[in-house]
Design a protein around this nucleic acid. Structure first.
Lengths: 359, 359
DNA sequence: CGTGAAAATGGTTACGTAACCATTTTTTAT
DNA sequence: ATAAAAAATGGTTACGTAACCATTTTCACG
């Protein structure tokens, strides 16, 4: 039987265990809980991690203490002793590219659902030593990244670190684990489609060929021209940074061409959508005045106001989702098989492309 | 003078310091570096943290050892002893709302530039005990969040935790620190504008009024009707979940109305853009057949193909950016002033609204 | 009821770092 | 040259947890 006095004493006791700290209350440790419950710290740990190995009454005592003291275990301390952080680093491309919006969503949600925290980093270029510094210091359990060049020197460091990692979208020349789409075929399908519509003044707008996606898509673009017996004119090939500003420069350059393009093959939907904006703002009609095709099949491209013709993965898969699933597998089962997934692609015919009017 | 034999010995020595671990190499500690360099662990720590207090030769010796052993300090261990993690938790709304794309970008980039890691969480509803569990266990230095209800019970726990936190976009009824737009005025401006265009069959589409943004915007909507002497008909008010599926349900319900709306006031641009998609896909023309206005002034709404009329912050500020700046201030200077920022708004007249044709 | 096995609990240690205090070395001022 | 001060370095500890081994308690069985 518990008297009011007992209760009061117990309450006072709980108060005493609350050390005031700089920020506010708390910083109650499992030691405090142990003392309060009259057991050893080891037992407190067991209550939380292997409750089966603790007798009913003990369990209740400890849980009561945890409640009374408002104890929250410290994941950092646990990481230190267990040598794992339950954290995955994500190095994504910028979100102004809708492709990364979708992959980031999938990656973060899937990881969180599976008990992993995600440290996010957005990188525009590949000059991100600071980012890797932070990632390596944090001893993350895995790394999922897109931002890498075909011959990126960081790759060696990644391998040497021993941390499981996988790339999505892009890959490195020596990549063991990656999830990509069939970039070459994507480029081919898009270009072949434009050619089949009768276009020949086609501009290619893409990023640097040191990046696997751009390289593959450009190669496919070339193959389509070859197959159709059309020559690629170098002045219509624009390799540019994918920022809005640089794309606007590119737009202006295309406007200066002697023979203006009747179609644009953008290496990504993000580029396509941005170019659409420039053209429409300049008074052009899409597709009547200019056809535009992208690659990636991003969600926003399916909006009725945009209706972007594009090439994308045949299935409804999401490269980020696939990659994070594999990465977490790799983290769990210590054996590391090669994950090399190249998803098949197909054309999504929509409303930004039209047969060339012969004038 | 160093002979080849010396070099070889040194190399062998370095090798010996590399303990093979489960995953791969490494797990070199500052102790290993100390032994290798012939100094104390304390000195190694000093070389990294207060190099001024170390003599030149010692510094060089230690740096050489760090290099030779490929030593990377363990941020977790540092966190444990320093009682800070240099980590901020972000609880954002889902990225299919473009508003959160922009805020997330700003928050992650600014935090990373200032030496903080960001743990991202996307939440659709407010039922996220697991998320908070993880956040509290990780002893983050600060929390920046949008997902909160006006009377959210989690608020009390946040306060009690003693962790600095700030909300952006939304706020709690008792919030000490928040960054929002003038939601009431935004709702007012949008509704008043539609009314000024001659619309009266206006549908409101928004989320639950337990959320400050929706509540404020709806209140403003009501005020505009009152000011214009127009009655709000309850059957034209749709309070719904903002998922694509639920919005489609709403669209179907609007189609069933006896008197179909001539204009839609969406509580957010995300809703507006989604409704646009449904209407155009169903064969309507925007704005000729139906006017649509949003709130937030998201980037994609400015695209030439969408051109969404909307209400947004007058300045080019970004609520997420403002909030993360303030939060990091709060973390650095231990005093915690009240950050209560309500940004002024204005109308952005674009192409999804038109004067009502009197039939 | 006694004995051995199993279950429950406790004590000690390590994880890797920075804080703290102690000691040694160097510099400065006389 | 010497004392005092300053600089440089080292030893020990704590941070909070789980692993590991030791001890005690409980239980089953003959």
């Amino acid at each position: 039987m518990q008297t009011p006095a007992d209760e009061a004493r117990q309450l006072a006791s709980a108060q005493n265990f609350r050390h005031m700290k700089a920020g506010g209350f708390d910083m109650v440790s499992s030691k405090d809980v142990a003392k309060y419950a009259g057991v050893s710290q080891t037992t407190v740990s067991r209550v939380l991690n292997t409750p089966d190995r603790v007798k009913g009454p003990t369990y209740k005592k400890v849980m009561a203490a945890i409640d009374a003291l408002n104890y929250i275990p410290d994941a950092n301390a646990r990481s230190l002793v267990q040598q794992k952080t339950d954290t995955i680093a994500l190095i994504s491309g910028p979100l102004y590219n809708p492709f990364f919006v979708e992959t980031t969503t999938s990656i973060v949600n899937y990881a969180n659902e599976n008990g992993f925290k995600i440290n996010v980093h957005f990188s525009k270029n590949e000059n991100i030593t600071d980012t890797y510094h932070s990632i390596f210091e944090n001893k993350v359990d895995g790394i999922i990244l897109s931002s890498i060049l075909l011959d990126d020197p960081i790759f060696e460091k990644l391998e040497k670190s021993g941390i499981p990692f996988i790339t999505y979208n892009r890959k490195h020349a020596s990549n063991k684990n990656f999830v990509e789409m069939d970039n070459e075929q994507a480029g081919f399908l898009a270009a072949d489609y434009l050619l089949s519509l009768g276009h020949d003044a086609i501009c290619w707008v893409g990023g640097p060929l040191e990046i696997s996606t751009f390289k593959g898509r450009y190669d496919g673009f070339l193959r389509a021209f070859q197959k159709n017996g059309v020559a690629v004119e170098q002045e219509r090939v624009f390799l540019t940074d994918t920022s809005k500003e640089q794309l606007h420069e590119t737009f202006l350059k295309m406007e200066m061409l002697e023979e203006k393009p009747t179609a644009i093959h953008a290496a990504t939907d993000a580029i396509a959508i941005q170019m659409m904006d420039f053209y429409i703002s300049a008074g052009y009609r899409v597709p009547e005045d200019i056809s535009i095709i992208g690659i990636d099949n991003v969600e926003i491209g399916q909006h009725a106001s945009i209706n972007l013709t594009t090439v994308g993965i045949s299935s409804t898969a999401n490269l980020g989702q696939l990659a994070i699933e594999k990465l977490i597998d790799m983290i769990h089962q210590k054996n590391k098989p090669c994950i090399q997934i190249t998803k098949a692609v197909r054309l999504f015919e929509r409303k930004t492309t039209i047969e060339r009017r012969r004038v």
